[in-house]
Simulated scan of single mutants.
Amino acid sequence: MEFDATFLSVAIPAAFIAGVAKGGFGGGAAFVATAMLALVIPPGMALGIMLPLLMVVDLATLRPYWKRWDRDAAMALMIGAVPGIVLGTLLYRVANADVLRVLIGTISVLFVAFQVARSRGWLYVSPKPLSKRTGLFAGAVTGFTSFVSHAGGPPSAMYLLSKGLDKTTYQSTTVLAFWFINAAKAVPYAFLGVFTWETFRADLIMVGPALVGCAVGVYAHRAMPERIFFLITYVLLLGAGGKLILDGLT
């Protein structure tokens, strides 16, 4: 594959946005990078490119948020994610590229719908902390959606939001949980042949913008209005998701 101007025009902004999201805004919007890449390359390759980048950014964000997380909440998500990753592995073995396009596109649209419904108060989030058993279930859904599309944000958010965490504790907990989940995904990804020399070459191109975005995200966590960042990412997700669904169905 040639990394031409079309690819670079999508890949570099996607990596930067993913870095900003992981560095300062809970990581959920990092999923937009996968949806954007899947518009110009096969979706399996998009997944293979993004996972190492997310893992690098995970490591970069551990230090500024070190031990500021809710350990019990993070553990529930991490333990629960394991069966979800196994289920995602089984699906990936039988799904073709169009199935993945539709799946990633659908999750993209549902992700935006979830966030809009939550911000508008249409989606009820329990004022009492959800049980650990619910956290394990949320972790399983997180593991599955994260495996097939790097979009584990909504199910984990539902659980974490019920715990009434402050902004920094919430961010720190997602950093720890997704550091583990992404590392766990790497093993089946390798066995499934998701990683190739081409995905590695793309990672070398994109790791710089991703790390710059991560640094910006850590700063923006304190200074930048979340509304502006998420408005941009939601518009991108809706556009990319709709296009992927159309491409996969036609």
Results as ranks from 00 to 15, higher is better:
Met1Glu: 13
Thr199Leu: 08
Lys167Val: 12
Val40His: 08
Phe191Arg: 08
Ala151Gly: 02
Thr106His: 09
Val112Ile: 07
Pro225Arg: 08
Thr6Cys: 06
Ala223Arg: 14
Asp58Pro: 08
Gly27Ala: 14
Ile205Val: 12
Leu244Glu: 04
Ala29Pro: 06
Ala46Gln: 08
Arg120Tyr: 13
Ala76Phe: 06
Ala73Gly: 14
Ala38Ile: 05
Gly80Tyr: 02
Val125Ser: 07
His150Pro: 00
Val116Asp: 10
Thr174Asp: 10
Leu8Trp: 15
Tyr159Gln: 00
Val148Asp: 10
Leu77Ala: 08
Tyr170Pro: 02
Ile245Cys: 06
Leu246Phe: 15
Thr142Asp: 05
Gly27Thr: 11
Gly84Ile: 00
Leu110Glu: 11
Glu226Ser: 05
Ser146Leu: 10
Tyr234Pro: 07
Thr199Lys: 01
Ala210Ile: 13
Ala184Lys: 05
Thr173His: 07
Met78Ser: 09
Ser9Val: 04
Gly248Ala: 13
Ile79Asn: 00
Leu246Val: 06
Ile85Met: 13
Ile232Leu: 12
Pro127Asn: 01
Gly121His: 08
Leu249Glu: 15
Trp179Ser: 09
Pro129Asn: 11
Phe3Ile: 15
Gly121Gln: 13
Tyr219Ser: 15
Met224Pro: 06
Leu54Pro: 03
Ile228Gln: 08
Phe200Arg: 02
Leu53Asp: 09
Leu165Phe: 04
Gly242Arg: 04
Phe137Ser: 04
Trp179Thr: 07
Ala177Asp: 09
Pro83Ile: 08
Asp98Ser: 12
Pro83Leu: 10
Leu39Ser: 03
Asn96Tyr: 14
Thr174Trp: 08
Val109Pro: 01
Ser172Gln: 11
Phe180Lys: 00
Val10Pro: 03
Phe25Trp: 09
Ile232Glu: 05
Asp203Asn: 14
Leu236Gln: 10
Gly208Cys: 03
Asp203Arg: 04
Ile232Ala: 01
Lys185Asp: 10
Val20Ser: 10
Gln115Glu: 14
Ala190Met: 15
Lys185Met: 07
Leu237Phe: 15
Phe178Gly: 01
Asp4Gln: 11
Leu160Ala: 12
Thr250Met: 11
Leu100Ile: 01
Tyr159Phe: 09
Pro155Ser: 03
Gly152Asp: 07
Leu130Asn: 12
Leu244Lys: 09
Arg71Gly: 09
Val56Lys: 00
Asp72Met: 12
Asn182Gly: 07
Pro52Ala: 08
Phe144Cys: 10
Pro129Ser: 00
Pro188Met: 06
Ser146Trp: 06
Arg101Ala: 05
Ala202Gln: 06
Arg93Lys: 13
Ser156Lys: 05
Thr142Glu: 06
Ala202Thr: 01
Met36Gln: 09
Ala76Arg: 12
Phe3His: 15
Ser131Thr: 07
Tyr170Thr: 04
Glu226Trp: 00
Arg101Leu: 05
Gly48Tyr: 12
Val86Cys: 01
Ala95Tyr: 06
Thr174Gly: 11
Phe7Trp: 11
Val175His: 07
Leu90Ser: 01
Leu161Val: 11
Ala74Arg: 01
Leu237Glu: 10
Leu8Ser: 03
Leu62Pro: 03
Pro43Val: 00
Gly24Phe: 05
